[in-house]
Amino acid sequence: MIRLSLRIPAGLHERVTAHAAAGRRSLNSEILHLLEVALAAPRADAGSPGGDPASPAPLREKPDSSPV
């Protein structure tokens, strides 16, 4: 198993933590579940002209760029 250190905005952390609690999962398990679901789902913009399916969705919140 690979260890990954990830920095996410506080608001997104709160949302994922709430999803984890609702699904009775640990935060780590919830993140894995969400990644698996997202990667298995067909991309809606994959067939659109100029839409690069490898492009990430824009952040909805400014990421925290402060040093740890």
Rank of each mutant, 00 (worst) to 15 (best):
P42H: 04
R7C: 12
R7A: 12
G11F: 05
V37T: 13
H19V: 10
E14L: 09
A44V: 15
E36W: 06
S48K: 15
P9G: 14
V16H: 01
R15C: 01
A22V: 09
V68T: 12
S26T: 15
I2T: 14
S48H: 14
S48I: 13
R25C: 04
V68L: 14
P9Q: 12
A22P: 07
S55W: 04
A21F: 01
L59Y: 15
L12C: 01
A57D: 08
E30A: 12
P42Q: 01
R15D: 04
L35H: 02
S48Y: 13
D52A: 00
V16K: 02
A57F: 02
H33C: 04
I2S: 15
G47R: 03
L4Y: 07
G23C: 10
R60A: 14
S26P: 09
S29K: 12
R43Q: 11
L6N: 05
P58M: 01
R7K: 11
R24K: 14
R15A: 08
E61I: 08
S5L: 07
S26A: 08
E30G: 10
L27S: 02
S26M: 10
P63Y: 04
P58A: 00
P42T: 03
V68Y: 07
L34T: 03
R3P: 12
L12N: 07
R24F: 07
A44C: 10
G51V: 08
H19I: 04
A22Y: 07
R24M: 07
R24G: 00
L12F: 08
P9E: 15
S26Q: 03
G23Q: 14
G50T: 08
D45Y: 00
P9T: 13
G51Q: 08
R3F: 10
L35A: 03
P63L: 00
S65G: 12
G11W: 00
V37A: 15
A46G: 06
E30N: 13
A18M: 09
L35G: 00
A38F: 01
G47M: 08
R7N: 14
A18I: 09
L34S: 00
P58K: 02
